[in-house]
């Protein structure tokens, strides 16, 4: 009994109340997900927390919209554009949706070619993904400036209806756009690592000192797909509802 006990805990040198005891307990070779790289698990856990952030934003938007006695502005009209003389509803948002889905496709392929150790194709696909992401942010800048400068939408008021519209819009799409921007930066860093061959030789690479292999590309992919995933919900609940 005592022998088995001492076998499973090989000499904990520190007192349980010592801060070092905290570290010793939490790092005592307990692996929960045996075949999953730790970086991937950590990224997933971060994404769960991010899910709650966006979830709470969308729920507060729902609460504001449901409790408003003033009619909610019709997003289909607010985000319509005049193209070649004809009135097309939501067209910019539709294009942004397709761009983000395309970038998710190129990202998934980049992960795949990374695991095939095809450095060149992985780099090209990552670069395309970053470009698509950057163009998404560019279109969002266009959307925001049109709404602010031409339509006079503010977080506290707007000429089309319920005042909470602006607050919800800027908060939700602003936070999502920030995620896309961070994702583009993250993509560029990973793309440079791939290009320089840091991942093939597990060298500590560009900007981050961590030695990475092609799992880094998959972890990057998780973040990027999550950004696309959040857009699916924003598109459904904010723009289409």
């Amino acid at each position: 009994m005592t022998q088995a006990h001492s076998h499973s805990h090989p000499a904990l040198p520190v007192h349980p109340t010592d801060p070092k005891g905290f570290v010793a307990d939490w790092s005592s070779d307990q692996i929960a997900f045996k075949k999953v790289p730790w970086g991937k698990v950590m990224m997933w856990i971060f994404l769960v927390s991010d899910t709650f952030i966006f979830g709470v934003f969308l729920i507060s938007y729902m609460t504001a919209r449901m409790s408003s006695v003033v009619p909610w502005p019709n997003p289909s009209e607010v985000f319509a554009l005049e193209i070649a003389g004809s009135h097309v509803p939501l067209v910019l948002i539709a294009i942004m949706t397709f761009i983000l889905i395309t970038s998710s496709g190129t990202m998934a392929m980049a992960v795949n070619f990374g695991y095939r150790k095809n450095r060149k194709v992985t780099f090209i696909l990552l670069a395309i993904t970053a470009l698509l992401g950057a163009s998404f942010v560019g279109m969002q800048v266009f959307e925001w400036s049109k709404l602010i400068l031409e339509e006079g939408v503010r977080p506290w008021s707007n000429p089309m209806g319920a005042h909470q519209f602006g607050a919800a819009f800027f908060m939700i799409t602003g936070f999502h756009g920030t995620h896309v921007t961070i994702g583009v930066i993250f993509l560029v860093i990973v793309a440079v690592k791939v290009y320089r061959g840091d991942l093939d030789h597990e060298r500590p690479g560009f900007l981050t000192g961590r030695r990475g292999n092609y799992e880094v590309v998959e972890i990057m992919g998780l973040y990027w797909h999550f950004v696309d995933l959040v857009w699916v919900f924003i598109f459904a609940f904010f723009y289409l509802w």
């Binding site: 998934a108 919900f233 459904a236």
Partner: peptide, 17 residues
């Protein structure tokens, strides 16, 4: 809207992720 949204989300999480 909900059906298309859930199908898209499911495909992204299941396959792409």
């Amino acid at each position: 809207i909900l059906i298309f949204m859930l199908l898209k989300a499911g495909l992204i999480v299941a396959v792409f992720m």
